[in-house]
Design a binder for these strands. Structure first.
Lengths: 239, 239
DNA sequence: TTAAACATATGTTATGCAGCACAAAATTAC
DNA sequence: GTAATTTTGTGCTGCATAACATATGTTTAA
């Protein structure tokens, strides 16, 4: 029977993928787990590949299994604003569906990524029959909203140095550092760094150079080592 | 029996209040409604009264039954940033609790307001046993998050005129207009208007005067009539 | 291998807006 | 009813940062 074959083909990948999604899957009963594993699909994305676009109709929830992605908004004059970044295993692309609208953001990979997709209609049905799953999304959304509130003030009220310092600390907290304990585990282009910090690319480059000259960071291409976290924190605080 | 008396005393107000909260209450069964009506308390706030403060531990969900409130964040150098505003019947003050943290914002009334309080422990319990209630919060949070994303770009990328235009349209959409069809149904101080639009009070005053000179709005103290909505929309779009 | 496209770097200019200072008007307090 | 305080209004100055120009290094493509 076709379904059996399809399942068999999927099985190894799907099982692995469901294991990674444990935080969500653990709220489900066996029947619900089955439904998800029937509906879930896996996708490979290259670096800088667009996942969804502004204006699209949301149909799937995306689960980032490996890699890194950005959610961004096209601003005035082609200037993009990075709204949030995700790491494994986090979910994205579902907000607009739950709010009953189209996408007001776009999403793209920052590095090669593996992403699982589940139809949102299915997720909605599951939420309505499983309060614990709903609770998972409520907690997640509340954390997102807190971060968003925080970012609004940071981006609007701090000066350039403060905004960049804030972004570097944000990236460290979000993605961590490599084995040496200093190098940020994410290699952003200066443009993405600028879009994250609400400034022009020129100013991101300039200010990062100044930080390097002040021995706050050590820059080697896209590798950034955070040397003096304490002073970066000061700069971020004082605006 | 004491509980009975307590109930009896509360009954009229509570019933009225529960009726207003229909969007939430309608998701509950009788037993759950009883729990809420036992725990709910009503409070009157004067104009410009603080409801909760930065750093406080969230204990109650607040339901605005009448009046208007702002949720704001203290920024650099005493400059406040209004994060969102609520109208009847909307809920606030629960985000931090669900995200397991303290308040990172403060809230205050913009006019005399009547506010119901329900312990968040109770709400959490109800969400965990009532998926439909959870769904209500998910929808609400997703709308909030969308507004927040939108605001981030507006506040960071638009010029002063664009930001003020945006704020005026935002207020119209959020609070509506009076019987004449033009006068905004909210009387904000210039300072609050500035804090909503990410600018200094001086610039809010100045720019509003310019709008008045350009016949886009008609200003009489804190009363603002929106005359030329189309052009305001243009100004807002173009930054 | 060369060219083309892109990313990074840095200096210069232009300007939008914050930060004053001060005055007038309106509200509140006594 | 007068003083005190807050809110509103306007002009001026300086600075932060966007915008532009240009150069160099680096990856991609033909």
């Amino acid at each position: 029977m076709f379904k059996g074959i399809k399942m068999a083909k999927k099985d190894k990948c799907t099982t692995e993928c469901m294991a990674k999604m444990n935080e969500l899957v653990s709220t489900l009963n066996e029947k619900q787990k089955d439904i998800i594993s029937q509906e879930i699909t896996l996708h490979q994305y290259k670096k800088n590949e667009v996942i969804y676009r502004y204006g699209d109709t949301p149909k799937y929830i995306y689960c980032l299994l490996s890699g890194k992605i950005k959610v961004y908004k096209e601003g005035v004059g082609g200037r993009n604003q990075i709204i949030r970044v995700a790491k494994p295993v986090e979910y994205f692309g579902y907000r607009a569906y739950f709010a009953n609208g189209k996408f007001i953001t776009a999403a793209a990979t920052l590095e090669p990524s593996c992403i699982a997709k589940i139809p949102l209609d299915t997720i909605k049905d599951l939420i309505l029959e499983n309060a614990e799953l709903g609770w998972f999304f409520i907690r997640t959304l509340c954390q997102e909203l807190g971060r968003s509130d925080q970012r609004t003030v940071n981006l609007t009220q701090k000066h350039i140095r403060g905004r960049l310092a804030e972004s570097l600390l944000f990236l460290k907290e979000r993605y961590g550092v490599e084995a040496d304990g200093y190098t940020l585990s994410i290699y952003l282009s200066r443009e993405d760094l600028a879009n994250l910090s609400n400034m022009t690319t020129s100013n991101a480059i300039r200010t990062l150079s100044l930080f390097a000259a002040d021995k706050l960071v050590l820059v080697d291409g896209r590798k950034i080592k955070i040397i003096d976290e304490e002073r970066l924190r000061q700069i971020s605080r004082l605006g």
